[in-house]
């Protein structure tokens, strides 16, 4: 499976490399894979691509952690006080359905062109799947665990830390895996809409200069970064499931 996937990837690259000279596609429209690879290496060597990647990743991580912590906390409040959940559910569903791209210009307006609007946007898109996952983790938790915490008279904190959080970890991982893709997308959207650093900024600059090789290189690089984040979490999820279930 894995091998075949790699063959598939290499196959596409070869096809692409062969097709460009055969069909005589102009380079400014479709540079070959080697040219794109060289451009990426050049951007690294010139010294600032690594920094742009770092910027984007730190926006993703910062926002992700912020959104996840707030999401977990909200789920906890909802599970403890069902009345709060009853009251807030319509509001949350409403906010969840509003396309997040509508919020992006507002964040740019309020927070400027730096990293903070991207962090905020990433946090917003991360919040919902994590909150939902945590809530269903707690809700569908084995009822006996809550019996145990009653018998042991655990404090709310102990109950959260020793029982609810670990019990929800499998669903939490599933939610977080969904959230990574959203988070990457949010960071890139934020950077495309207005930024002076980050991978999205490099991408936008490439477009303005009609520099196809850079744009393609960044698209490929972003794909792999997105996939890597996803794969790491997915691996974590499987480890957790193997270990406990």
């Amino acid at each position: 499976m894995f091998l075949k996937a790699i063959i598939g990837l290499v196959g596409i690259a070869v096809l692409w490399g062969v097709a460009v000279p055969i069909f005589d596609v102009p380079h400014y429209l479709l540079p070959g894979p080697i040219e794109v690879a060289e451009r990426i290496i050049f951007l690294f060597q010139r010294g600032d691509l690594a920094w742009h990647i770092y910027v984007t990743l730190s926006e993703v991580f910062g926002g992700f952690i912020l959104g996840a912590v707030v999401g977990i906390a909200a789920a906890l409040v909802f599970s403890r006080f069902p009345i709060v959940e009853r009251v807030l559910t319509p509001l949350i569903l409403l906010l969840q359905t509003i396309p997040k791209i509508a919020i992006a210009p507002l964040l740019l307006l309020w927070l400027g062109l730096g990293a903070s609007p991207k962090v905020a946007l990433v946090a917003v898109v991360t919040f919902f799947p994590v909150m939902t996952a945590m809530l269903s983790g707690i809700r569908y938790m084995n009822k006996s665990y809550s019996d145990l915490s009653v018998v042991l008279r655990l404090s709310p904190w102990q109950r959260f830390w020793h029982i609810e959080l670990p019990a929800a970890i499998p669903t939490l991982f599933a939610g977080a895996t969904v959230a990574t893709t959203l988070a990457m997308t949010a960071a890139v959207i934020g950077e495309l809409m207005g930024a002076n650093k980050g991978m999205g900024f490099v991408l936008a600059t490439g477009q303005e200069n009609a520099d196809t090789a850079t744009v393609m290189g960044m698209v490929i690089l972003l794909s792999f970064v997105g996939w890597a984040l996803f794969a790491i979490l997915d691996y974590g999820r499987r480890r957790v499931e193997d270990r406990f279930l």
Binding site: V151, R153, A167
Partner: peptide, 17 residues
């Protein structure tokens, strides 16, 4: 007391983690 009773459940209810 903090914990008035100890309880052994019908199924073990160990924390799997």
């Amino acid at each position: 007391l903090k914990r008035p009773v100890g309880f052994v459940f019908q199924d073990a209810v160990l924390l799997p983690w």
